[in-house]
Amino acid sequence: MKGNNAIAEAAIQAECRFYAGYPITPQNEIPEYMSWRMPEVGGTFIQAESEISAINMVYGASACGARAMTSSSSPGISLKQEGISFLAGAELPAVIVNMQRGGPGLGNISASQADYFQAVKGGGHGDYKLLVYAPYNLQELWDLTMLAFDKTDEYRNPVMILGDAILGQMMEPFVRSPYVKPDLPEKTWALTGCEGRKPNVIKSLFMGEGELEQRNYMLQAKYQKMKGTEVRFQAYFIDDAELIVVAFGIAARIAASAVRRLRNEGHKIGLFRPITLFPFPERAINEQSGENRRFITVELNAGQMVEDVRLAVNGKSEVLFYGRPGGAMMTPEDLYEKLLQVYLFKLTQ
């Protein structure tokens, strides 16, 4: 099963019953899969006439209480930004998948991580955050997609799965772990017909005196809560590491190969892999930093997460960057050479 299909089937298993999408490479397998799979489970698949319509269909379905999802790739995600901001403002759950490709502009269709800023710093207008998961193999695509549906309902906040062209297109074995639905509060806010109860209101427009500010403080409190409880990361060989590689998603997969080889050769190098990009594992990284440690972030972009690593380290360690921007791919061999040089010769850039 391809990564894109794994996401689609995991969503079905997690009781997603509404999907709206639009063609764009390299995520077409998701709408294609949903187009025949949704009718099988009594769900709804809609191919919209644009990405903008797809995200707004998700807004409508989510407002009615459905578990709803859309997917796209970088340029299409840019088009969805207004809708994502509205979802966040109206506190509507939704799962949004971005199988990133190289940008800016039309770029190309090969893998990239250049939408990190867009995903974690807001993307659309207004002070909002998405909960962002960065899977690095098919197992995580499966597991985190299921988790995303629970978390988006729990927080009433859109969740993004930030994947890329490689993860979407590759195949590898994984365990189709069954979906176990946690206890979630009933969606009493949903627009389900108000006979016998007070009508619900879902909106992101707050014109009353002080209303909008209050709303924003409430949203910020929600993000703070996520920072306290939703951080996920994995660390490999870091206890005695003198150099810690920080990488997410497919870059972490590439970095893991290079780091393993360097470890086998006796070099004290470790890997720190954020799984949530917002909330960012800033405390964990800060705790690892110190004078005898250096960090290098490895990304498939021109240097985005490195800014968050620097903020987390807060001057306690040197933080270097190695990356390839959109249009290029790094191999474990490239990275091995680079890390070896940085490690042995104490290079500063």
């Binding site: 063609p23 764009i24 490479t25 077409n28 709408p31 294609e32 187009s35 698949f45 191919q47 006439e49």
Partner: peptide, 17 residues
């Protein structure tokens, strides 16, 4: 992008979506 339906697709046609 791989033969997905559009609003120009004729009635009855089999496409990937």
């Amino acid at each position: 992008t791989g033969i997905q339906r559009s609003s120009a697709t004729p009635f009855g046609a089999d496409t990937t979506t």
